[in-house]
Design a protein around this nucleic acid. Structure first.
Lengths: 229, 229
DNA sequence: GTCGGCGAAATTGTATACAATGATCCACAC
DNA sequence: GTGTGGATCATTGTATACAATTTCGCCGAC
């Protein structure tokens, strides 16, 4: 089953989507260099379309683009990590509220399927896929709220969150996710906007508190990066 | 004086910045076709860099990119217009609050200068430039709040707002702007977060109410567009 | 042994060439 | 006169070629 990252036309979109998926699922680690020729060879396209894809990903802050130095998978700083979750705290709770106020039965089954698949993936040992599905749950809520603009922002923030989790996740408290999502689902099913807003707010707070955002810099990917460019 | 749109390296950034500026200042109307060869000729670069610039602008939703049909300056629908201001309502008031809590004297003079220049531009008959400066005021506040991520979102929303104003502005009530910005400036100067938040909320509401967002579709640009693609 | 610089290799930035797709216009049949 | 078909043109999509820049290894001087 191909994800919603796809469905966009144009081969550069395809390349961008597949790279994004790999990043979401933690198969491409933060800091990984993305050489245009290599990527092009892998996907069987020319550098032209690879460059377009990389530019797109750079705009979503999934890769960092430095002039004459090419693209690397982004390594959000602690500061950026905090900012991302502050932005999510501003956007998602209110969005969850308006989503709840217009949730229809169809939406519930779709969300339930996300939760189930996430559960399956986790038990199959595919943590990357589980994480990706967990993010899609949030995006789906923004979509139910019927706010394309906010949905786009949330999508971007969720994507960056995936990178942040890759860098700053601490092992303890592993399975807080499912509970929160289940509770949210129930609030949505009952069209209980106030609860949905509160639950989302709490869920996001739980998420940041499961991160290790103290002053330690994230593990640098190359020695060169560690000593400054 | 070159604007903050610039300062980005890379020639495609330059092209994107100059196009964006033209759109902000309403010198490029919504719906205008942007042919790659033409733009390239104007700026003295090849289609390669023009395409990169257009892609960037498309990501900011300033231009619409349709496969095999090229780029046009975006024409936000009424629905999109509402969404943009709903997103701004979610982001900007709280951001104004935290900006107020950390506003320093330097910031005040910078904001004051924005207001003054806006005033000058208006009296010089350069409404486009005035609008642009008015938008920069909002962006500057997000910057003072020291939130890069939210600042990027606000920048994008302000840019789209410029297009929305171009399409849906109604003549009556012309000069509500300056008062609101002045009041905001005072709240910031006094580090009064609560007031800043309220003022921003009200200011955004004023803005949408000065738009004509009833069901009439925006003026279509070409006959072909009017009859469906 | 270490530092500095020179040169080759690798990589990105930009332009151009060609292919593919869609738009336009004119001829021709009805 | 109207509508349809096809050739031509304009424009975008993609690949490739070349220039500019950076990186890395090697060599020599101190």
């Amino acid at each position: 089953m191909e994800d919603a990252v796809q469905a966009l036309e144009g081969s550069s979109m395809t390349v961008a989507g597949r790279l994004a998926l790999a990043i979401h699922e933690h198969r491409l680690a933060p800091g990984t260099k993305l050489v245009e020729d290599e990527v092009g060879e892998i996907f069987g396209v020319s550098r032209t379309v690879v460059r377009a894809a990389l530019q797109q990903l750079a705009h979503d802050r999934l890769v960092t683009l430095k002039r004459n130095h090419g693209a690397t998978v982004a390594q959000p700083t602690i500061r950026e990590a905090r900012e991302v979750f502050e932005a999510r705290a501003l956007l998602e709770p209110r969005t969850a509220r308006s989503a709840a106020e217009r949730t229809k039965p169809d939406d519930i089954v779709r969300l339930q399927r996300h939760i189930d698949e996430e559960h399956d993936a986790l038990h199959a040992g595919d943590a990357g896929r589980a994480l990706r599905l967990s993010g899609l749950f949030h995006i789906e809520i923004a979509r139910i709220a019927d706010q394309d603009t906010i949905c786009a922002f949330v999508s971007q923030l969720v994507a960056r969150s995936s990178l942040i989790i890759a860098l700053y996740w601490q092992r303890r408290n592993a399975l807080c996710e499912s509970h929160a999502h289940h509770a949210l689902l129930r609030a949505l099913a009952e069209n209980d906007g106030a609860s949905a807003e509160e639950l989302m707010k709490g869920h996001l707070l739980d998420l940041v508190s499961s991160l290790d955002l103290r002053n330690l810099p994230g593990p640098p990917r190359t020695l060169a990066e560690a000593l400054g460019r």
